[in-house]
Design a protein around this nucleic acid. Structure first.
Lengths: 247, 247
DNA sequence: CGTTACGTTGAAAGGGTTCAATCCCTGTGG
DNA sequence: CCACAGGGATTGAACCCTTTCAACGTAACG
């Protein structure tokens, strides 16, 4: 019989997400050294927190399945939401400079992560230049994401914000090898509203309008984009945003 | 006679900003090695660009005097503004992962910078762990700043946005050793508006209200805060924002 | 099957934007 | 030294969109 734990404990080498995750750009030997640091953790249930504001920073986490919403307050996402993390994303690095987590990550679904103790990672990165570069690139990605968030929030209209947000999600889906036009989205309207600086009511109304115009439908956590072109137009995508989308 | 170029070419060791800049946390010898990489550049005039969107990434820059506004478009800040950089700040790192600048930095005053070639910096950082850590901390600071930007943009009211923004500037001033309640601010209302997702008209109106209520005055590029307490109240500062402010 | 939380829909109200006119400051040239 | 031009700042009024508050519908869970 195949060991049932083998999948759970899949090494970085075998992981389907290695092209999105840390191993990107590392050679086989280095991946093994990285792999030795990684601790696979038992799954978190929806609503459980991976880390809290104020907690000491000890590790970064790679999402394997499920996802997180991250907010700046201890409560489970009642305040402003500053980001979403999906499979292949790495979270926790925002605590790097202070040594203390400044945000709280809450699972939006049943979620599994890989834990990578940071002190060991930092030590290893001094020996593997490309890993060090990876670390910087990771921070850079965080920066790009946060910038996209600001871009979203600076849009005046609710339609623009939502259209661009969904376009972004779609882009992220396709990067993970999933269908970019039809995918599951475990987020609540409320979460999206908190992320975009809107109210759930507005989100609902805009989505209704989108459905009306045959642009997309989002029912029962399933998002289906039927007219990508119109969505692009509504989002007001320009060159610089295009770059952020691709990043 | 004292060599007039000596001030211009002041080493990191003698620089008044070393507590804010890269050398932070480095010992004397390492500062010298860092210093060897730094190129002091002639001053930029108001409106001149330090780097453009699309330009290859070769160096990061530390602001010595003056300041920059950074936007995501090639034109000189006509579109959305994503950040301001003041003395002691380091800019350019957002190009790190792509190798190409994704933003344009334009001087808002007569401005002098130190240029640090990045490839050399990255090489040196592999030899000096604390410098490597500095690099990560720098990225982390960029992240915090961008998060603050998102925080500002997610505020619903114009008063809240402006109040918090000014509070933030004040905090940055005091960190540089300047008067936190009365300082020069080379920004146009228009720049602030573009940064905060508002119109110049709204900024003007809110500032008029602030002056009316004896909270602050901003005339002729001179900003004077007369009632910090009220400003805090208007900004709706909470714990997590407080942390961002201090960061 | 009922409870709870989320989603939807409606009408009213508030605040920022927009557009346009005027003012003010700066720097320029006569 | 003064006059003029230009860009930015101010002020006013009308409009539009989001928020707010409330009620109702609906899906998931025990």
């Amino acid at each position: 019989m195949v060991n049932p734990i083998s999948l759970f404990n899949a090494s970085c080498t075998d992981c389907g997400l290695k092209k999105l995750c840390f191993p990107l750009g590392l050679d086989k030997g280095d991946i093994l050294r990285l792999d030795a640091l990684v601790k696979r953790k038992p799954a978190l249930q929806k609503g459980e927190a991976l880390f809290h504001v104020g907690q000491p920073f000890q590790a970064v986490y790679a999402v394997r399945a499920g996802g997180f919403k991250v907010s700046t307050v201890p409560a489970s996402g009642e305040d402003k939401i500053i980001g979403f993390y999906l499979p292949g994303d790495i979270l926790g690095v925002d605590a790097l400079s202070t040594g203390t987590h400044v945000s709280t990550a809450v699972a939006i679904d049943t979620t599994t992560v890989c834990e990578i103790p940071f002190s060991a990672l930092e030590r290893l990165s001094l020996q593997i230049p490309s890993l060090n570069h990876q670390l910087l690139a990771l921070m850079s990605k965080e920066l790009t994401d946060e910038r996209m968030h600001a871009e979203l929030l600076s849009r005046k209209g609710a339609e623009e914000r939502l259209a661009l947000f969904i376009l972004w999600l779609s882009e992220r889906q396709s990067r993970r090898g999933f269908n970019a036009l039809d995918f599951r989205l475990g987020l609540l309207h409320r979460d999206v509203a908190l992320y975009l600086g809107l109210t759930p009511e507005t989100v609902s109304r805009v989505l209704a309008r989108f459905a009306e115009d045959d642009i997309l439908s989002w029912r029962n956590k399933q998002l289906n984009i039927s007219n990508l072109h119109k969505l692009h137009a509504l989002a007001g995508v320009n060159e610089s945003v295009q770059q952020c989308l691709r990043a």
